[in-house]
Amino acid sequence: MIFPGATVRVTNVDDTYYRFEGLVQRVSDGKAAVLFENGNWDKLVTFRLSELEAVK
């Protein structure tokens, strides 16, 4: 189960963010908004829950 605050990895091989890890900001309607941070940039991207896996 994916909840806000969880760290997730993108599993969709066709996505630009494949294998990126980010922090879930919100979850609704089968989608999750994931925040990616890297140095001087932040990006908030929405994914279907089926495209994400929780990082242990």
Rank of each mutant, 00 (worst) to 15 (best):
M1N: 11
M1Q: 11
M1Y: 11
I2G: 01
I2P: 03
I2W: 04
I2V: 06
F3V: 13
G5V: 02
G5T: 03
G5D: 02
A6P: 01
A6I: 12
A6N: 07
T7V: 13
T7P: 05
T7C: 13
V8T: 01
R9S: 04
R9I: 09
R9E: 02
R9L: 06
V10A: 02
T11V: 13
T11D: 03
N12D: 06
N12V: 07
V13C: 08
D14H: 13
D14S: 12
T16S: 11
T16Y: 13
Y17F: 10
Y17K: 03
Y18D: 01
Y18M: 02
Y18C: 03
Y18S: 03
R19T: 09
R19V: 03
F20A: 09
E21C: 12
G22N: 00
G22I: 04
L23P: 02
L23E: 07
V24C: 06
Q25G: 04
Q25N: 04
R26P: 01
R26H: 14
R26C: 14
R26M: 13
V27L: 07
V27I: 11
S28Y: 15
S28C: 14
S28F: 15
D29C: 10
D29N: 12
G30F: 06
G30S: 05
G30R: 04
G30V: 04
G30A: 05
K31E: 10
K31V: 12
K31N: 08
K31H: 13
K31I: 12
A32M: 02
A32K: 00
A32C: 07
A32W: 02
A33Q: 14
A33Y: 15
A33I: 15
V34C: 03
V34W: 02
V34E: 01
V34R: 00
L35Y: 11
F36E: 00
F36Y: 02
E37L: 13
N38R: 12
N38I: 14
N38Y: 14
G39I: 08
G39R: 08
N40P: 12
N40E: 11
N40Q: 11
W41P: 12
W41V: 11
W41N: 10
W41F: 11
D42P: 13
D42R: 15
D42S: 15
D42E: 14
D42W: 15
K43H: 10
K43E: 11
K43R: 12
L44F: 06
L44S: 06
L44C: 11
L44T: 09
L44M: 08
V45T: 04
T46K: 05
F47G: 00
R48D: 14
R48F: 14
R48N: 14
L49N: 03
S50C: 10
S50T: 10
E51Y: 06
E51K: 02
E51F: 06
L52P: 00
E53L: 07
E53Q: 08
E53K: 07
A54N: 10
A54R: 09
A54K: 07
V55F: 07
V55E: 03
V55P: 03
K56N: 12
